[in-house]
Nucleic acid binder design. Structure first.
Lengths: 212, 212
DNA sequence: GGTGCCACGATTGTACGCAATCTGCGATCC
DNA sequence: GGATCGCAGATTGCGTACAATCGTGGCACC
């Protein structure tokens, strides 16, 4: 099942299955050389995650999203990450502070590269992921982690084209540092507010790209 | 599938399946006179919702929760509902205001009954549900609605014993009115803050009950 | 020419069987 | 006596067959 789930999910996120497209169990099963059973389970799981919409006796289709939906989704993510930062401020442990600092340092190093080679972009993306993941881990809230994991990369298919703008990346770096300081200082409300703003800025940039 | 899902879920929420208990597909299938297939799908769905935890080749068990987990879950719910109230403040439509007022009036009527008969308690619970559901609908955010639906009644099995305390119920009524006013006045930040406080008070009451 | 109905194809829903995997217990060896 | 290996039972993972359901197209009738 896990293989069917992974592959279907990837196909949706990467845009190989287009929004609105019907996902017929038999066809997908043949495509991945599996039987319908694991495909069905994968589709159910994807439905629960919101990547797919399905009606009884009518099957599943790739859920499509308007720009507004996407903005709302980012709003949701912003609240969830803000809550994570809030919790982290009172729960983070020393080794997680170290990990957070290391990830922020990586981000800084990549930013200093003064190049927009694919490799640099990937390094920035990876450092960014580590920063957010560390804060999430420090929040020590399983269900929140689960929800965020599923919410964060839903808009990935729309982000694929997104270019990293230098000013925007520098601003992100600043916010990461401010959030880190608030968390380490044990100030939940500032950590929360800063994280909210940080994610909402990401939303605005994405929306501007899509509209423009 | 939908029948298996509903029945298993109910059994867990009502506490008939105890936390930590293994959910063996074959046994459940026999219990509900179904085959394993729909049971499997239901278990996967429940896993996605967080009611059940399952490991590869080892099957599913009813997820157990400590008081701390429960408190965290309520914290999460509080943030989600606060976000819903925030959105509702700028999106609510006239007929939804009417519905909200009607639900609040029902709550008031039930509260005035000066009795703690089961019927009254049920009326209060139902009015409360309608109030929150209306605000959620007014937020017009599908995914948020989906998440909340799944988050709200997870602690139900722990709430089963909970008695409605009069002072606490009156306080809830007051908050409902304040939240309603903030939403109708189009003030998102107050609506959000009030809802957050409202749900967190519910959490504190529940936690006090469980610890005491 | 339009509208309603029926039958057929396509697809999902469910059942069941077999293979793969894990768990616990007992026998064997050191 | 304790530890380890192996086997048997239990359980999950997956494949396949059949039943139920839905949408569509054609045909008859108005």
């Amino acid at each position: 099942m896990t293989t069917a789930y992974t592959q279907i999910r990837q196909a949706i996120v990467e845009g190989r299955y287009e929004p609105g497209q019907r996902l017929i169990e038999q066809r997908i099963a043949e495509e991945f050389a599996l039987s319908r059973t694991p495909v069905r389970e994968a589709l159910r799981r994807l439905e629960a995650e919101g990547l797919v919409r399905s009606e009884p006796n009518r099957g599943a289709v790739v859920r499509d999203m308007t720009t507004d939906d996407l903005a709302d989704l980012y709003g949701l993510r912003a609240r969830l990450e803000a809550y994570a930062a809030e919790l982290a401020a009172s729960r983070i442990e020393p080794h997680q502070v170290e990990e957070l600092d290391a990830a922020i340092a990586d981000f800084d190093r990549a930013l200093a590269e003064q190049s927009d080679a694919l490799e640099v972009t990937r390094a920035i993306t990876e450092a960014n992921r580590r920063i957010h993941a560390t804060i999430l881990a420090a929040a020590r809230h399983d269900r929140l982690g689960q929800l965020l994991e599923r919410t964060v990369d839903v808009p990935l298919s729309f982000q694929a084209f997104r270019q990293f703008d230098r000013g925007e990346t520098e601003r992100s770096h600043l916010f990461h540092q401010l959030i880190r300081d608030a968390i380490v200082a044990g100030d939940p409300s500032r950590a929360s507010a800063l994280m909210l703003e940080h994610v909402l800025q990401g939303r605005d940039v994405l929306v501007a790209h899509l509209d423009g």
